[in-house]
Design a protein around this nucleic acid. Structure first.
Lengths: 255, 255
DNA sequence: GCCGATTTGTCCGTATGTATC
DNA sequence: CGATACATACGGACAAATCGG
């Protein structure tokens, strides 16, 4: 159970929205009402609502109320969410996960790897290559690099189950932030060898750097997805660019 | 200039981070110090930092401080940011934008359009098809649907410049939240006609629903990008799934 | 190992402003 | 105009993690 009050309220409201206790376009109870329901301060309610807003669940309207704008997506493809292990994603997408280890090695980062992964030259790393299947169909090819200093004791057996369970559960590592970039790349021979690509000649590729709660990067991963089973979701909020700072920023814009 | 204090602090710190006034892995000044620098309350500083955190700029560490974890991405591709007009993106990516109108029409949503765009059947819409070029090279094919009720007076001339400038500037519309999904799709004949795709047989496709500050959807857009010039960035933070609520949620998981 | 200083995390109460109705 | 609702900002209290002496 979440120990933070705002986190409890956040999860409770989110669950009510997802399960259509509040319907699309319906107003949530006012802050004042929520304060009484959850017996807490205004700030605490507002914090929960603020997180729901940043995830695109609700839209607060000045002077009016907070509107539910959550619409479930149709689950035909494999959706990518927050920082999730493959196993967690599979469960969320209601599919049966299976992992096949293709490679498991220990290596030391050279300059080429530093440039690619962000790990300093000389870092001791694990390199793992895995084929991920959902409901028996091979869909994703993962190339992982883990910093051995922060993830000691990794084995192929753990890699076949869940690395994140091991890191969080056994090692007590706290996973915090992941920066991801998404591109479309040509298929490689390895892709073609393991994944049935029909006539597609490209893959959806997510590369991610993941940090622990000390801001230290412990993972670099390239995840290559079969394009027709891939769906990535995102919510953006507008920051009016007309309100930029009048500092040195604009000077650097076109350096 | 931003009138909100927290917004000023947020933009100021962000600018200092981007311009490497604070270097990668360096600690930001403590909250206490920032309070004095900006002459404000602790909550105000914390709000600014919280937004930088959610954008992957910094990593707060309990009891230690706040670490800068921002690394600039190499700008070989066209990066997609928050809610931006094409023109804004082009400027941010230091490229010269050009727009060619392929179609401009008014239409009424039928069931097929409702299912696709989320606009109710019977809604009066503008439909615009545009080819977007950067530095003279055609790279993106946009299909826009705008709700006429909220975006009256759109013309091909406006569409050739910046629709967002018109909506925000002339109409006073406030653009709030955009839900986007990213997929990889096969090329269409229209794609091939206008965009030089080499031998790629797919496109990176962003579909987005955009809402105003009343939570009303006024835009649906499908943006088809040439894959080799496409790069999408994202930051995710971990919410430990082990801390889920013990409510009806789990019961619904596998309904 | 302990203790105090520092720093971030959570929570509260209040005041004021602004938009809506 | 007043009542309601969200937005911003302040100040204070206590907890939890970290660090240095």
């Amino acid at each position: 159970m979440p120990k933070a009050k705002y986190d409890y309220i956040y999860r409770d409201l989110k669950e009510k929205i997802e399960n259509e206790y509040y319907t699309y376009q319906e107003m949530l109870p006012s802050e004042h009402t929520l304060i009484q329901e959850y017996d807490c301060s205004r700030n605490t309610v507002r914090r929960a609502i603020s997180e729901l807003t940043s995830e695109g669940y609700v839209q607060p309207m000045h002077g009016k109320g907070v509107r539910n704008i959550y619409q479930p997506v149709e689950q035909t493809a494999f959706t990518v969410g927050g920082i999730e292990s493959f196993k967690e994603s599979a469960i969320r997408n209601r599919r049966k996960p299976f992992t096949q280890i293709l490679q498991f090695a220990e290596l030391t980062a050279d300059e080429k790897i530093e440039k690619k992964t962000g790990f300093k030259k000389g870092s001791e790393l694990y390199y793992i290559q895995r084929l991920r299947s959902l409901n028996g169909k091979p869909l994703i090819l993962d190339h992982n690099y883990f910093l051995r200093e922060l993830t000691p004791g990794l084995t192929p057996e753990i890699a076949a189950q869940s690395v994140y369970e091991y890191l969080e559960g056994t090692l007590g590592l706290t996973i915090s932030t992941s920066k991801r970039t998404l591109t479309v790349e040509r298929v490689t021979q390895v892709d073609e060898k393991y994944i049935d690509l029909k006539d597609y000649n490209c893959m959806a590729v997510i590369t991610s750097q993941t940090f622990d709660d000390n801001g230290i990067q412990f993972e670099y991963t390239q995840s290559r997805h079969r394009p027709d089973y891939f769906l990535f979701q995102d919510v953006a909020t507008r920051r009016d660019p007309r309100k930029t700072l009048t500092l040195s920023q604009s000077a650097l814009q076109y350096q």
